[in-house]
Structures are given as C-alpha cells and as structure tokens.
C-alpha cells in the first residue's frame, strides 16, 4: 500500500499552495491598482497615500509576507512546469482544438508568470529603489513619487513594456483567479459560473486600471 503523499508535497498540495499564494497576490494587485488611480486625483493625494503606507512600521511585515508568498508561488510554479513537461512524454505534435480546445491563457501560465516576475523586479528597481525626489505638503516632507512616475513614463519604450507586461498580468489573472477556487476545492454548479465571470472581470479591471496610469502620463503629462 502506498504511503501518503503528504499534504503540501503531493500534487494536490501544490495546487493549494499555488491557489492560496495566487489569491493573496490577486488581492494585492487590486489594492495596488486602486491606489495608482490616485494619480487622477492630485499629486498630493498620490504622494500622501504612499507616505502613509511606508511610514507605517507594519509595512515591513506586509512586504516580507508578500515576498514569502511570491517565493512559494514561483518555487512551486518552476517545480510544476518542470514536472509537467517531463510527464507529457514524447508529445511535440498536435494539441487539442475545436470543441476540445482550452483557453490560451490557461496553457501559457508559466510564460506569463515568467514575464510578470521579470517585470516585478524591474518595476521595484525603477520605483521603490529608484530616484528619490522629495516634496512637502503642509509642512510634511515626503517622497515625491508622482514626479518620478511622470519622469519615467515619458519614454514610449517604457510605456510599451508596461502595457505588454500588464496585459500578461491580465491574462494570468483571467485564468488564475477562478482557477484558485477550483484548486481549493470550491467548485459548485451554483457558484462556479459566477466565479469564472468575476475572474474575467477582475482580470480586465486590474489590467486596465494599471495600464491607465502610464498611458495617461504619456499622453497628458508630456514634458
């Protein structure tokens, strides 16, 4: 009789981990996207939001948590991709199509994920660890991220790269969001059709909201 595969080391355990970490990051990107929209309010609102966020000591715990979740997600994704490629065997021929075809987003999660990971690292270098400008509002001195954002998105190459990466994020979420529910064992004919629709809506909203910022800066705040 076979021994137990273990909760998190089994193929199902890896699904739980991908689902939980993916959902957590889905929530983060929604929050991040919503905060970005403050650029449409005012430079002060934009900078004050990030000031409040980074002056809270809890931010370090949150950041460490996010990094840990991402590491688990990426580690499992690499493991899954390698194992799954090997499991296919000799299959470099045709794939399912027509009535038996599946969404291209679900088939290219690893490629989208790799692109998003590279993007995330470069994005942190550009903004979080980028040039520090300071601004002062009502006597409070804070980082002027608004100025940096306006500066960075003058370059059409940068804006184009952001749009491509964020479209990839949209695709990733369009499969990932609803897929997480399935992985966590939540599938029911009454709720799953709605979850799938919400997942698609979520992906479009997040991607469009993110893309709005660089495109807006490039078109409206031309320096």
């Amino acid at each position: 009789m076979a021994a137990s595969a273990g909760l998190f080391t089994s193929s199902i355990g890896k699904k739980y981990l991908m689902g939980i970490t993916g959902l957590a990051w889905s929530l983060f990107v929604l929050m991040h996207m919503a905060a970005n929209l403050l650029i449409f309010v005012s430079p002060k609102a934009y900078n004050a939001y990030s000031h409040v966020l980074i002056s809270n000591p809890f931010i370090y715990v949150a950041e460490a948590g996010l990094v840990l979740l991402l590491l688990i997600h990426v580690y499992n994704a690499i493991k899954l991709t390698l194992e799954n490629r090997a499991a296919r065997g000799e299959r470099a021929f045709l794939t399912t199509s027509g009535a038996k075809g599946v969404s291209s987003a679900s088939k290219t999660m690893a490629a989208q994920g790799s692109l998003i990971l590279v993007f995330t690292i470069l994005h942190l270098i550009t903004f979080k660890y980028g040039t520090v400008y300071m601004a002062s509002y009502d006597g409070v001195v804070m980082r002027d991220l608004h100025r940096l954002v306006l500066e960075v998105f003058q370059s059409p190459g940068y804006v184009g790269w952001y749009v491509v990466a964020l479209v990839a994020l949209g695709f990733h979420l369009s499969h990932g969001f609803q897929s997480s529910f399935q992985s966590l064992g939540l599938n029911h004919p009454r709720y799953t059709p709605a979850i799938k629709k919400i997942g698609l809506f979520y992906a479009v909203i997040v991607a469009a909201g993110f893309i709005a910022q660089p495109v807006y800066v490039f078109l409206v705040h031309k320096q």
Partner: peptide, 28 residues
C-alpha cells in the same frame, strides 16, 4: 509520475463520458 493539474479543463473537454471538474474539487 502523472503530471500536476493546472485547471486548463482539457480533460473535461476530452472526456467521452462527460466527467466534470466538480469531481476534482470534491477530491481536493
């Protein structure tokens, strides 16, 4: 050494007997 499921749904589409992915969620 079967692969790990990534919820593409190709299995459900190919199944000649109409087995649904709801069974997979139940199994998890």
């Amino acid at each position: 050494k079967f692969g790990n499921c990534t919820n593409t749904g190709a299995c459900e589409a190919a199944c000649p007997k109409g087995i649904t992915m709801e069974n997979m969620a139940r199994t998890y």
